[in-house]
Nucleic acid binder design. Sequence first.
DNA 1: CGGATGTCAGTCGAACTGATATGA
DNA 2: CTCATATCAGTTCGACTGACATCC
Lengths: 131, 131
Amino acid sequence: MALMRARESVMSRFRPILAEYGLTEQQWRVLRALAAADKPLSVGELAEQTLLLGPSLSRMLASMERRALIDRTSARTDARRAQVTITRRGLELVTRIGPESEAAYGELESELGPDELETLHQLLDRVAAMS
Amino acid sequence: MALMRARESVMSRFRPILAEYGLTEQQWRVLRALAAADKPLSVGELAEQTLLLGPSLSRMLASMERRALIDRTSARTDARRAQVTITRRGLELVTRIGPESEAAYGELESELGPDELETLHQLLDRVAAMS
DNA sequence: CGGATGTCAGTCGAACTGATATGA
DNA sequence: CTCATATCAGTTCGACTGACATCC
């Protein structure tokens, strides 16, 4: 519950911004992962990085492709593997929303202080690594 | 994302146990809140403690009432306010699942150590309090 | 009356399972 | 053939909104 409350506290600031741009949290995670990666990602890699399931991603990607936020082509070396890339339009969205995202992160840092934010990060990573 | 990963890591151990008993995470949160409170809770109080929305709760409570896990009556002093209590059957479920829940928490404690778990808790609470 | 509480109805997004096409 | 990757189909659940009944 503590983890949920903390996440809810952070996201409640950020969700309205996403809604303005017609994005769900999950779609935002996809866009960020693609923008951060400097290469095309497979659906499997995306699933891992965004904590989404394959079928959910599959439908989301179809919808995001219709909105021209991402592109899907199949890999040359392995035709099973999709190549998902972010489009110029998608990247534009990320760069427009990005600053507001960092602002939310900045609030967090000014609330906790840089050292304790770092501590929090390390502890969370250790919990995540338990799996 | 760090908060999500940490939570996912914790819950991935626990979710199969809930599934065994036919409970969703959200229903479990309701049961725990009711078991922890030694008095009837209103839907509003439940919403606050479980991070669920009113309408979602309303439907869930109806379903849980059909399964005889909870009871709903209206308050004497204020007929708008519902009195939600846990039934004997619901309490039985909590006491059966409880130990497994604490086992998961124990894993966390043995992974981080008691001091750092405490630190994590405090940091998370501070983030949650930002709202 | 105005404000609070809870429920209902309906829509939407995502989780999840099982089956299937395709290719390594 | 096997295994992996991705998608499809279908169901279920909760988020969310707007309307509404009820009561303070």
